[in-house]
Design a protein around this nucleic acid. Structure first.
Lengths: 346, 346
DNA sequence: TATATTTGCTTAATCGTTTAAGCAAAAGTA
DNA sequence: TACTTTTGCTTAAACGATTAAGCAAATATA
């Protein structure tokens, strides 16, 4: 029962040098001879030395841990972002702690406390739907550790941000729908208080105006964008005196709910109603009809977020110039909007 | 720019007592007077004291961190397990570090190294599909920290395990299909080397025999159970001279692939072919027809796994009696197998 | 009143590493 | 040869908490 871990002291004893020399040898300090370095590394391997992360973190003030906060992990988008973030961070010697807010403001605050308590070197987060008060994020900033936001961000916080161009995405969608002959387009959006949803709504309205389509307030609704919200809002839209001939939903989950209602009411998609979602969740290609949606480049977002963190850590002199990475999104046209123009036309 | 954190020393200075007294007061040591405790806690709050987790972990040898390894987080099952595990562990003062293996053996090994390096107090894991060699898990055991497996476990490791009764689940499914008039049932399973898939196959075979249905080796196939695998294996089954009238697929993803093929080939589900999946992924209730599946009680599995860990930590004297929690699963009957018996009957 | 026990703290060592400071010996320079 | 510089290490003090040991003063017990 060999409970005792090997420490640098043990290595030092074997080689009759000081623990300090061992520590420096392990870090390839220039003031240690190659011979000693070789010997130290050999003995370290022989004794199966595993550095005590806590001790080095305590001494150096660095934990080599990055905290990640996402609304939930069981979304394809977030899980893909995390996977790619992890790849970059692991290579740079960082490990990540993933926490979920479940879209709850309270849980998000707790997560931040947990992460700060764990002495993470930085936090990469995507805000919960509920979040309006930003004081807990200010807390991170005031500690002086890097904070990077992605997808769900907030301009007021004045921190690095990586996301897609939501405003432009709305334009892409509207132009696609117009090209499919749609004349009266509705938008089931998220709440305006969240930046990305506000941008999507602004993009929607501006694109509508640009192309001289009717701007009817009844056609723009806000919700939490759950599947159930999608159902309810779709029903409301269908009950209008003058219902739309296309719906752009700001989330795939809500789009699915809308699709269910359309199927139930025997409204043919895309013939009678075009439908577009957002996020490219896997199920969009599995349901019938398959749903046209927007790909958010989760891989790049993850990588860039991680790289931005590393830049911030390396730049000791906290430069105020912020990274605002806005990626172009990609429209994935599927059956829910891909109707034959030879029948209906311009 | 107030970079300096408050330490117990600062509190001690304010109150003119020793840091040791402060530490004890914070931990409600019986040898500290109520008056001092009150004062310490008041000053701690005033100075916004946050205990340095690294220092206490280093000294006490406990990190209060639990490592979690899952094949992937973007599955509803695993994300729900994690959420519930987290609830229990947070209450007990533990935080969790989530890592994903992406079903890769190599990544799993790396994750274990990462977690051990981070000095976690225990590891709760579900094994990757690829994993056959168990030496890296033995490494955890040899460090003397608790290892708890769930869902994807392995008897040879001789550790605590929480999962559902896969053998019994197969029986439930077969009996349900027989009650729906199915006479020739096929099984698209996972690889036998993984315990749960082996159990499902064993259960399938035994149930077939028990009810005197034909046991045809062509009707039992093994695969990685991806959506694509489901497609391929379904096509193979349909190409048989004597194809089945029902298919039990050991994963919802593969079941979805099978359903796509059936839809494409205009084979009516459930009239001509009954289909049952496994896992109760959300999309099973979203596709058309909805898929009959098995609910795995992710919430309970998460909770019990966390509670088992806590038990192990508290039981300093490493009792060899292992927890083997086998929960009963629940069959969720949906349209893909719910055919009208008044037409076809016993 | 004398002794034992309890209370409420302090002192100092410790966890394993990093790192500033320092010091010989070796090598370079004039 | 006499000096500066570089090399290759050592010493010792941190980092911030925990904790065993100890010691007065207060309280209890005989």
């Amino acid at each position: 029962m060999n409970k005792k871990r090997t420490t640098i002291k043990d290595i030092a004893n074997v080689l009759n040098i000081s623990p300090a020399a061992v520590s420096k040898a392990m870090h390839d300090d220039s003031r240690i001879s190659e011979k000693t370095k070789k010997a130290v590394k050999r003995v370290a391997k022989e004794l199966n030395y595993q550095p005590n992360h806590l001790a080095s973190a305590l001494r150096s003030g660095k934990s080599n841990l990055v905290g990640v906060i996402v609304p939930r992990t069981n979304s394809n988008f977030f899980s893909s972002v995390i996977e790619n973030m992890e790849g970059v961070l692991n290579k740079a010697g960082y490990n990540i702690i993933i926490t979920q807010s479940n879209e709850s403001f309270e849980k998000e605050c707790k997560n931040i406390d947990t992460l700060l308590f764990t002495q993470v070197d930085g936090i990469i987060a995507s805000m919960a739907n509920e979040t309006v008060d930003l004081s807990h994020y200010e807390k991170i900033k005031s500690k002086g550790i890097p904070l990077i936001l992605f997808d769900r961000g907030e301009n007021d916080l004045n921190v690095d941000y990586i996301g897609i161009d939501d405003y432009d995405s709305s334009h892409m969608i509207i132009e696609h729908l117009i090209s499919k002959g749609c004349k009266r387009i509705a938008h089931i959006g998220g709440f305006r208080r969240t930046r990305i949803f506000n941008n999507r709504i602004r993009g929607f309205i501006d694109a509508i105006h640009k192309h001289n389509l009717p701007h009817d307030d009844d056609l723009i609704v806000e919700s939490s964008l759950t599947l159930e919200d999608g159902r309810i809002k779709m029903q409301e839209l269908l009950a209008l005196d003058n219902p739309p001939d296309a719906v752009y939903v700001a989330s795939d989950y809500a789009a699915l709910g809308a699709l269910q209602v359309l199927n139930e009411q025997n409204i043919k998609v895309p013939e009678e109603m075009c439908l577009v979602g957002f996020g490219n969740e896997p199920f969009t290609s599995l349901v019938s009809p398959t749903i046209t949606t927007v790909k958010q480049h989760s891989k790049q977002i993850g990588k860039i977020a991680a790289e931005t963190f590393i830049k911030r850590i390396k730049a000791k002199n906290w430069k105020p110039k912020l990274e605002k990475n806005i990626l172009k999104s990609e429209l994935i046209v599927r059956n829910s909007s891909n109707r034959d123009l030879s029948i209906k036309s311009t």
